[in-house]
Simulated assay, not measured.
Amino acid sequence: MWTLSGFSDEISPDFAEQCALVAELGLTHLELRSAWGTNVLDLDADQLARASALLTQHDLAVSSIGSPIGKIGIGDDFGPHLERARHAVEVAHHFGAPYVRIFSFFVPAGVDPDSVRDEVLTRMSALARVAADGDVVLLHENEKEIYGDIPRRCLDVVESVGSPYLRLAWDAANFVQVGVRPFTDGYAQLRPHLAYVQIKDALLASGEVVPAGRGDGEVAETMRALHADGFDGFFSLEPHLSQTHALGGFSGPALFTEAWRAFTDLLRAEHIPFA
């Protein structure tokens, strides 16, 4: 039974409105990236308590902390960022979330990503040690313009660090936007390290983000293969159907619902059970 989740801040800045629609759609989990217009790692004690109360009220749990850890330049000071990662683990504990989503650092335009590999791996290893200390699993997301943007370098990160506390999140749209055919070019090599799936699709010709199954992200093929080999985990809607920016995106209630409907229709067509 696959478990659906979603970046609920794509619904509304207001966390109460986020929770209400997530529950209305029948989801049992959400991915917490921001609430009341504030990044999850910047919520104060009162906001954290309010968020927990709303989750309880709507009988919702948190599948992952959608943190911005690793979304700094590879040349930026890492010390403060490592402290922020420790706080991300604390926030995961607060919400009972098993995962924290992270990235592998922006590479300046015109710089060969492979030339900064050693520094990336040093930093990712340090993050993995923080996760191990806190017994939380980090999910590396393949994002545009970071070191781990293509399957080869995603694999390099997770295999070179070699920690059970660092796994991969799969984002088909992000792969498409860097010219990768996700299932064809990446599934076989990344599947052993895959722990979490983000649901977003895109068009290869333009990079435009579209609902699942309507782009070139080979979503149906990927879902079919995951189902066939027994994957059992979270699938987190990240529609980005209205706005997108460096730290996230926005859809609004109607487009978030459209994204949910597109993905659940795909699952029903493939006879894949979900909750």
Score class of each variant (00 low, 15 high):
residue 2 W to F: 13
residue 6 G to S: 03
residue 7 F to M: 12
residue 10 E to D: 10
residue 13 P to G: 12
residue 16 A to F: 04
residue 16 A to G: 02
residue 19 C to Y: 00
residue 24 E to D: 10
residue 28 T to G: 13
residue 34 S to L: 14
residue 37 G to H: 00
residue 42 D to G: 08
residue 56 T to E: 01
residue 63 S to R: 07
residue 72 I to E: 09
residue 75 G to D: 10
residue 77 D to N: 07
residue 77 D to F: 04
residue 77 D to Q: 09
residue 78 F to E: 13
residue 82 L to T: 00
residue 84 R to F: 14
residue 86 R to C: 09
residue 91 V to L: 10
residue 96 G to C: 02
residue 98 P to H: 06
residue 104 S to E: 06
residue 107 V to W: 02
residue 108 P to C: 08
residue 110 G to A: 02
residue 110 G to C: 02
residue 113 P to R: 01
residue 114 D to W: 07
residue 118 D to C: 14
residue 124 M to D: 04
residue 127 L to D: 11
residue 132 A to N: 11
residue 133 D to Y: 14
residue 135 D to S: 08
residue 136 V to S: 04
residue 146 I to A: 00
residue 155 L to A: 09
residue 157 V to A: 04
residue 160 S to G: 03
residue 160 S to Y: 01
residue 164 P to V: 12
residue 167 R to M: 01
residue 170 W to G: 03
residue 174 N to W: 03
residue 174 N to M: 00
residue 181 R to Y: 05
residue 181 R to I: 04
residue 182 P to C: 02
residue 184 T to K: 06
residue 187 Y to L: 04
residue 190 L to K: 00
residue 190 L to E: 04
residue 209 V to M: 11
residue 211 P to N: 05
residue 217 G to V: 07
residue 220 A to Q: 03
residue 221 E to F: 01
residue 223 M to C: 12
residue 227 H to W: 11
residue 228 A to I: 12
residue 230 G to C: 09
residue 233 G to V: 15
residue 235 F to P: 05
residue 236 S to I: 05
residue 236 S to L: 13
residue 240 H to E: 04
residue 241 L to M: 09
residue 241 L to A: 10
residue 241 L to H: 00
residue 242 S to T: 11
residue 242 S to V: 09
residue 244 T to W: 15
residue 247 L to V: 13
residue 247 L to R: 09
residue 250 F to V: 06
residue 257 T to K: 06
residue 262 A to V: 01
residue 265 D to P: 07
residue 265 D to W: 06
residue 268 R to M: 14
residue 271 H to T: 15
residue 273 P to F: 13
